[in-house]
Design a protein around this nucleic acid. Structure first.
Lengths: 243, 243
DNA sequence: ATTTTTTCTGCGGGATCCCGCAAGGCCTTG
DNA sequence: CAAGGCCTTGCGGGATCCCGCAGAAAAAAT
């Protein structure tokens, strides 16, 4: 059994290395990669390795890397070890985990023991381990109590990328009016909506831009989510007849 | 001489502690704080301490903390030790450093020796030390070759917060038209402008939203910059006659 | 199968945005 | 002082956005 560590911070990398060796004495090899690209390559070479990785790395972000790793070998077990439990990350991860895959998500702020326990649970016992806090986010986002549906999230991303209503309609196969409906919906859920008569904030805000702002502030969106979305977008644009 | 370390990651904190002790044997006390708030408090208590801190902490971000520390004691020497050289951070820092203050900015990716050297330079030799890469950003942003003027940056922040033209005009004491001029300027610099006849991207983008998107992607803006801006904004809103 | 609920769609209009055009400052340069 | 820049401002108009209204279509519930 081998373990592949993908983490760009050298300190954290060596800490992880140590933790893995301590928690998994039956492990007979620890590989290290300092960014997503290198990680993918190593994962390709060394089939059958388990993976523990950071989200948010400079070269190629963790979610991208995980996606390609899982695409090539869906039964790979991955433990995500991240600083943040931003909704953007949690949603990003749960969006790409293959059916029935074993994975984990623990925060860097967790204790030593917790990390080691997670390592054993996932790699030995085949059991998913998700930190309480992260779990919380998942509930909130999937069960839609105060959370966002897929449709709403999608349109949020679209306006965050700067698309017009028309472009969104085209991309999502909707009428322009439907797009606007979803936007209204989104504005309401984000608490940005201006109830007609209510002149509390006399048109100070551009709803579209404001929605993006609060989404960012609430960490519903973050840089890496935007990067992924931008990549998808330009792929779609390329595929589009040049109008 | 005492040194105050403000850093939320325990690993990095202890690494820093060690580095400080090694680089500054004449130092007779190292304090630690794990977020901005605690850091400010300690700095208040222990006058005359030098500070080395991370930007980007959960509780209260580094720039905020540095600002209040410097406000209370402008001659404090601060070494910023950060993962990123985002323009948003660099600009944020250089915006708050007091006249003639001694400070430094080194990346976490720098070598051991570089860090120790920086510690000695700043705290002993009273000399500013700024990493090459960070320097690069400074040049690019201050000298306006491919960089943004204060006015442009300001308006970028304003639209990122979701303000309308009118609100911006009000806030910055300009006419609406001037605001729009600056916006045009911004769109051009961000490479988002649509040259009239050019129907390459047939109105796919909402310029205002798109500008924010590319600013984020280019790390001209980031979460903490937005947070600061949002705080300023709501302060301003409170101060505003309720129209 | 029928009712209920949700979503999609077109229409219309007011507000906002985007921006060319042109006139008036200020500030530098010759 | 005049000439040329740069920034500001008003005007005007076309494009876009925001959204109430109401009927059609689809999905969910009964």
């Amino acid at each position: 059994m081998k373990v592949l560590i993908i983490e760009d911070d050298p300190l954290h990398r060596s800490y992880l290395n140590e933790a893995v060796r301590a928690a998994l004495p039956e492990c007979d090899g620890v590989l290290e990669a300092e960014n997503g690209n290198a990680g993918e390559r190593l994962a390709r070479d060394c089939k059958s390795a388990h993976v523990v990785m950071d989200l948010q790395m400079s070269e190629r972000n963790g979610i991208e890397a995980a996606r390609t790793i899982w695409k090539e070998r869906p039964e790979t077990r991955i433990l995500f070890w991240s600083n943040y439990s931003d909704e953007a990350y949690v949603r990003g991860v749960s969006r790409i985990v293959p059916m029935g895959a074993v994975y984990g998500y623990v925060l860097k702020s967790a204790s030593d023991d917790r990390l080691k326990l997670a390592l054993r649970s996932i790699f030995i016992e085949s059991q998913c381990v998700i930190d309480r806090e992260v779990r919380g986010m998942q509930q909130k986002s999937l069960g839609n109590i105060n959370g966002f549906t897929e449709a709403e999230y999608e349109i949020l991303v679209d306006i965050a990328l700067g698309l017009t209503d028309r472009a969104i309609a085209q991309r999502r196969n909707l009428s322009v009016r439907s797009v606007q409906n979803r936007l209204q919906q989104l504005y309401i859920k984000l608490g940005v909506y201006q109830p007609l008569g209510g002149q509390s904030d006399d048109g100070r805000f551009n709803l579209r831009a404001r929605a993006v702002a609060v989404a960012l502030l609430r960490k519903l969106l973050n840089h890496s989510a935007l990067e992924r979305a931008e990549a998808d977008l330009s792929a779609w644009l390329a595929r589009q007849p040049h109008n």
